[in-house]
Design a protein around this nucleic acid. Structure first.
Length: 310
DNA sequence: AAAATTTTCAACCGCAGAGAC
DNA sequence: AGTCTCTGCGGTTGAAAATTT
């Protein structure tokens, strides 16, 4: 390591927000990365209008917002793999994560510490994964044609990224879980197509993806231009968006606006009668949750349909 | 039903590696 | 060669949720 003479802090901690991320921040981060990628985490928060340090943005993206993440509980097969891999690699969580597409090192670390550590003491580590009955395995990773990705398959980066965005997992070896999106249609009026792909044996294969989620967000590149909100978040200026996505922009902007109002980041929209007429915060919350659940993908990490809302 | 305790997991912290200058 | 910045990693924390008493 280089250095010496003391290390400058990554950011001024007195000027950045900490703690749990709000849905509004998530939207900002995702929509910014969707359009601009993340060439520089340090400068990203300012460019995206987020009062967060770059490290926090990176962590949020990698551990929670990346589109190639699996959601939900670990399957018994995944748990088995973790136990077996831990016996090989020890606490090298990123190494273990590289064998489990869609799972993060942090997630694996948590599940190990909370569930598997004790269990691993009583499980016979010599059990061969391939000995299990595949017909009983429920959540084996699949590619778009339904074919299972067998354990041990080398998954690496696509040879030619299909857009300016890349999102690689952080592993330091060559076997990287990877996704990419084709942003070539972002200036058309048709819903944008996003593909998550993996490269297996020199063949690029699209994964089953959360297309609706990304389509929903594809036109939300522009930060909300509300003065109060922008001032609070330190927005440096609007980001140009394709005019052809206007309708979808309005839709996304509508529910983002509801979100901001619920969070009291901005005052209620004058013409939003439903919200104005509802005095009880609980009612507002429930109505708002329903609005969101009607409009956004259930895969959205903080979706009320995903039991992760608030 | 309420309080106490335990569990979960998102987020933070500091360190180290790599690369740029 | 030395310094600095950025990024990634693994350990830890603490608030919220779940469970037990």
């Amino acid at each position: 390591m280089g250095g010496g003479g003391g290390r400058a802090p990554c950011c001024d901690k007195s000027k950045v927000k900490r703690g749990p991320w709000s849905p509004a921040e998530d939207v900002r981060l995702v929509s910014f990365i969707q359009k601009h990628g993340h060439p520089n985490w340090r400068s990203l928060p300012k460019q995206a209008g987020l009062l967060r340090c770059g490290k926090s943005c990176r962590l949020r993206w990698i551990n929670y917002l990346r589109p190639d993440l699996k959601r939900g509980n670990f399957t018994p097969q995944e748990e088995h793999s973790i136990i077996r891999l831990h016996a090989t690699y020890g606490n090298k969580w990123s190494k273990i994560a590289s064998h489990l597409p869609g799972r993060t090192d942090n997630e694996i670390k948590n599940v190990w510490n909370t569930h598997l550590k004790k269990r691993s003491l009583v499980i016979d580590n010599t059990t061969n994964y391939n000995d299990t009955n595949k017909n009983q395995r429920e959540d084996v990773p699949k590619i778009s044609n339904g074919q299972e990705i067998s354990e041990g398959t080398i998954i690496d980066q696509p040879s030619t990224p299909s857009s300016t965005i890349s999102c690689n997992s952080d592993q330091d070896n060559g076997n990287k879980a990877c996704c990419s999106w084709d942003s070539t249609t972002t200036t058309t009026t048709t819903p944008c197509q996003y593909y998550e792909t993996i490269r297996i044996n020199n063949q690029e294969i699209p994964l089953e993806s959360e297309v609706e989620f990304w389509n929903m967000l594809e036109s939300s590149h522009q930060p909300i231009t509300d003065d109060e909100h922008d001032h609070e978040l330190g927005v440096v200026g609007p980001i140009n968006k394709p005019s052809s996505c206007k309708d979808r922009d309005m839709e996304v902007e509508y529910w983002v606006r509801l979100l901001e109002e619920e969070l009291e980041l901005v005052s209620p929209t004058p013409d939003n009668k439903d919200i104005e007429q509802t005095q009880n915060n609980k009612d507002v919350h429930e109505m708002w949750c329903k609005t969101l659940s009607d409009q956004i993908s259930p895969f959205w990490p903080t979706s009320p349909m995903n039991n992760g809302f608030f």
